Simulated scan of single mutants.
Amino acid sequence: MTNLVRIAPGALTIGRPLPWNVYDADGNVLLRQGYVIQTNSQLEQLFERGRFKPRKIERPQEEIFEDNRERNPFADYPDLLHTLEATLNAITGADPSAHKRLLGLARMIERTCTESPDASLALIHLYSIGPVIHEQILFHAILCQFIGRQFGLEEKRISVLTTAALTANLALVPIADKLNASNKVLSNEQRGVIRKHAERSIQALRSAGINNKLMLTIIAQHHEQADGSGYPRGLSGTDIRPEAEILALAERYIAMITKRAYRDRMDVANARKLIANLADGKFRPAIPKALLQVLGEFPPGILVRLENNEVGVVTGRPVRARGPFVKAIFGPRGNRYAGTFERDTSLPEFNVRALEEPEIMPSIDFGLVWGLNS
């Protein structure tokens, strides 16, 4: 198999699902997408032997910045991250193509969320244990798509909100991963960078010729709070754009379910409780309510233990009277099933008993579980 690329050190992490199939130099599959690396020695072997196949976009003479293939969130994940990184670099470099790149990426994310909503939400929860900054930004944009639509924003405003979510933390990109990996108290200098990141992101966008007024307003206001306790201007109430509150809530939810060096990640049940409490003063009540409706009690991508003691992964949100769609991956005695088995969680023996929050995700063949072609 040609066009295979060696895996760079740092691209893979113990305890997180593989973002793509891994091949040997002859093109034979070593590990499937979704497999979770368990040990350091296994990781070293993959860096030594492993290759992956980038899903490159064929470009005609006039370069385009949008991929119109049928969307598969899991197979597209590495490409979305690569495109996001290239887009942010184009903005900071004041590249003339920056605006087209940003709009094209936003449309790709919109199509992904529209065509595969449950799989898009699953992507967030499957990769949320220790995401790097580009992953977090992608998750913010995905959540903004869903919250904005549930809140009732018109499509044009959702599109602008998505571009704001992709660029609001532009100024934090160089330092975010280092901050998240540190268990030390922030220095005054670091706090200053964080408080000014929205302003600096806006400056970079303007320098790149990106001047959408609504987009820049969303970024400027996304750390304001309805009770006036936010920054930089201490705005309150309806002086804050609802799009800015949606972005702020998306960022807060991702932070809740993400592990940091200085704290553990929060399980979805506790995150939902905190979101419900945010309706009391910090946000206009309809926005936390919209996020709770998007997630449901058991969001796609989380693991649950059933009444019969099986462990399964939630693949879809409830429809009408039935519970969440779950596919069992472990048997009652902890044995890993060779395949997956659909369980009707409205039946007593398959009711959801509890959430499972592993520090290391089990290996999951995403294509098999969600029935998507890679």
Rank of each mutant, 00 (worst) to 15 (best):
M1G: 08
V5D: 08
I14L: 04
R16Q: 15
W20K: 02
W20Y: 07
V22P: 04
V22F: 06
D24I: 12
T39C: 13
S41C: 01
E44L: 03
L46V: 10
L46I: 15
R51Y: 15
P54R: 06
R55P: 05
I57W: 07
Q61R: 02
E62Q: 09
F65K: 05
E66R: 12
A75R: 13
Y77F: 15
N89C: 02
N89S: 10
A94Q: 11
D95L: 00
K100A: 13
L103N: 08
A106P: 04
A106D: 03
E110M: 02
T112W: 01
T112K: 03
L121E: 09
S128F: 04
Q145R: 07
L153K: 04
T162H: 14
T162I: 15
I175D: 01
I175Y: 12
A176L: 08
A176N: 07
L179Q: 03
N183C: 08
E189P: 06
E189Y: 14
E189K: 15
G192F: 03
S207H: 05
S207G: 13
I210M: 00
N211I: 05
K213A: 13
L214C: 04
I219T: 08
I219W: 12
Q221S: 11
H222S: 11
H223L: 09
E224N: 10
E224M: 06
D227V: 11
G228D: 09
S236W: 10
S236Q: 14
T238W: 12
R241M: 12
E243H: 01
A244E: 06
L247A: 03
L247F: 12
A248N: 13
Y253Q: 03
M256R: 02
I257T: 03
I257Y: 01
T258Q: 07
T258D: 08
D264Q: 14
R265L: 08
D267P: 13
D267M: 04
A271W: 05
R272E: 09
N277Q: 11
N277D: 11
N277A: 14
D280E: 07
G281N: 08
G281W: 11
F283E: 04
P288D: 10
K289W: 04
A290I: 09
A290N: 07
G296R: 09
P299L: 07
P300I: 12
I302C: 03
V304Q: 00
L306T: 05
L306N: 05
L306P: 02
N309S: 05
E310H: 01
V313D: 00
A321N: 14
A321D: 14
G323F: 11
P324W: 10
K327R: 13
K327W: 05
R333I: 03
G334I: 06
N335V: 05
A338N: 10
E342Y: 14
S346Q: 06
P348L: 09
V352Y: 03
E356A: 02
E357Q: 11
P358R: 00
P358G: 05
I360L: 11
P362I: 04
P362R: 14
S363I: 14
I364G: 00
F366C: 02
G367R: 04
G367T: 07
L372M: 10
S374M: 06
